[in-house]
């Protein structure tokens, strides 16, 4: 019975990773949508963190949403999943740092995460992003490359 369970788990695992990968991708695509439509608002959300010098928040606000969209599409469609999951992890680590310092400094600001209107920074957001960081790590360190269109590797299905 135990052996059957273990075998089942091992078989299930790669599919679970595919599911996590697709969900993470959908979250990134969804999060990018409003930011692409209104980069000005996203730039102001970034500025509220008081961490970016010399007005560079506008440039960041123009680039990050597209980065989120492309890694989201990559994760959903199985395109350049290694690169997409690595950038996804990097972005999550960066977001956690931003929110962490704002929370410590007692800022009462919108997080600008793009998932829900009016979400404020705080420990809940840090925890949420830690979960996404963990998901990115799982995808990056996946054992089998299932449903991946490009690049094709001997491991891909």
């Amino acid at each position: 019975m135990q052996a059957w369970k273990l075998k089942y788990m091992i078989k299930l695992h790669p599919w679970l990773i595919v599911l996590i990968r697709i969900l993470l991708g959908i979250i990134f695509i969804y999060a990018s949508y409003d930011k692409i439509l209104d980069p000005g608002k996203f730039a102001r959300d970034i500025a509220n963190y008081h961490i970016i010098p010399m007005g560079f928040e506008n440039l960041i606000a123009l680039i990050i949403p597209w980065l989120e969209l492309f890694i989201g599409i990559g994760l959903v469609a199985g395109l350049m999943v290694d690169g997409a999951s690595m950038i996804s992890g990097g972005l999550m680590a960066l977001f956690i740092l931003f929110i962490f310092q704002a929370t410590l400094r007692g800022f009462n600001i919108e997080c600008g995460c793009g998932l829900k209107e009016g979400e404020m920074v705080g420990w809940n957001k840090i925890l949420e992003n830690l979960v996404f960081l963990g998901a990115s790590y799982l995808v990056w360190h996946r054992q089998q490359k299932l449903f991946e269109l490009f690049p094709k590797t001997p491991l891909s299905d």
């Binding site: 123009l62 680039i63 597209w66 980065l67 990559g74 690169g83 950038i87 690049p151």
Partner: peptide, 17 residues
């Protein structure tokens, strides 16, 4: 892959603006 995704994002972000 990382370089390509970042480059495309930067270009599309700047051109779209």
């Amino acid at each position: 892959q990382v370089k390509l995704i970042i480059t495309v994002s930067v270009l599309v972000g700047l051109i779209s603006n």
